[in-house]
């Protein structure tokens, strides 16, 4: 189903915002103003934005580690100030400064990230099970190609299909897991070919096209809400930079080909989306400039909020009180 103009505007705005947030995180890690790692999402923010923007309030969202979930925040209205405060160990962080990048917003049904890639193939079964019983929500289960090496992926898809759970297995295939290429680590070119073994509907889409992603996920969500079970959406995307800032950018043991990377940049999601909104007269250049300016202003507000928040240094006794409910 084609998107309406308002939907396209919303997607475009969220893509610009996500791109600015990713750049903000890049700048901060380079300046030593971020705790832990940052896994840049440069050039690959369309998939997350497209997948998350039209999620329902009750839907469960599980972002993955690429761009630390920044592409997925829009649809859940995540407070980026509290997110950044968390990532900088501040008292106003979404988890009280305890989690660094293992952030969560449980009230908005973002139950948390983990450093164990593919960890969410475990709870996703229960999220799906509960969602089916509640009947008015779906699960967007985002992950990369690398995580489909985990045995849990099989276990999750098995039960999801046995029980027709309302889960969207949303795989961003950027062809790389740290230094390993998807070509080396998976026998088939499409990760979504795994779905065939479960009889799960699967589709491969252009993850650089924010509009195509949104259309697909809206359809998958409808399918799930109608009780028809899970779908597998594979969004082909790219990784323009190293796995995480500070790690050499290798493919296997060799530096990645700069010419190839340059070629990938030609299909930057923002370039593609801008071309389309202008061509289809969804937005004018003036409106686009305004959106960009607003995103810049949002970054200033977010950074100020995080920077003004005091460093979280609770006593051992306070921490002990937080272990058990």
């Amino acid at each position: 189903m084609a998107l309406g103009k308002e939907q396209m505007k919303t997607l475009y705005r969220n893509l610009v915002r996500a791109d600015h947030f990713d750049k903000m995180m890049m700048n901060r890690i380079m300046q030593g103003k971020l705790i832990g790692f940052y896994h840049p999402g440069d050039g690959a923010m369309a998939a997350g934005v497209g997948a998350s923007t039209f999620l329902g309030e009750n839907d469960i969202l599980n972002p993955h580690h690429r761009a630390h979930g920044m592409a997925y925040m829009a649809g859940k209205g995540i407070d980026v100030g509290r997110y950044l405060a968390e990532h900088t160990g501040k008292a106003d962080g979404c988890c009280g400064g305890r989690s660094s990048f293992h952030w969560s917003f449980p009230e908005q049904k973002v139950y948390g990230a983990s450093g164990f890639i593919g960890w969410h193939f475990c709870p996703v079964v229960g999220w799906g099970w509960a969602s089916k019983r509640k009947g008015n929500q779906v699960v967007l289960m985002a992950s990369g190609d690398g995580s489909y090496g985990q045995g849990g992926a099989h276990e999750a898809m098995l039960s999801a299909m046995n029980w027709k759970l309302p889960i969207i297995f949303f795989c961003e295939n950027n062809g790389m897991a740290i230094h390993s290429t998807a070509d080396d680590m998976h026998p088939m070119p499409d990760i979504s070919s795994l779905a065939q073994g479960y009889g799960m509907p699967a589709v491969v889409i252009d993850g650089q096209d924010v509009f195509a992603v949104a259309e697909t996920v809206i359809a998958a969500r409808k399918h799930a809400l109608a009780g028809k079970g899970p779908t597998f959406v594979e969004a082909k995307t790219v990784r323009l930079r190293e796995h995480d800032v500070g790690t050499p950018d290798l493919a296997r043991a060799e530096p990645r080909d700069p010419e190839y990377l340059e070629e990938l940049k030609q299909r930057d999601p923002l370039v593609l989306a801008t071309k389309r909104v202008l061509a289809e007269k969804v937005l004018t250049q003036k409106q686009i400039d305004k959106i960009i300016k607003e995103a810049e202003e949002e970054v200033v507000v977010v950074e100020k909020f995080a920077d003004d928040s005091p460093i979280a240094l609770p006593s051992i006794e306070e921490l002990q009180a937080g272990v058990y409910a």
């Binding site: 193939f121 709870p123 079964v125 229960g126 509960a130 509640k134």
Partner: peptide, 9 residues
């Protein structure tokens, strides 16, 4: 995971 995820819900 059926239990873990459902407990969050």
């Amino acid at each position: 995971g059926t239990a873990f995820g459902a407990a969050m819900e």
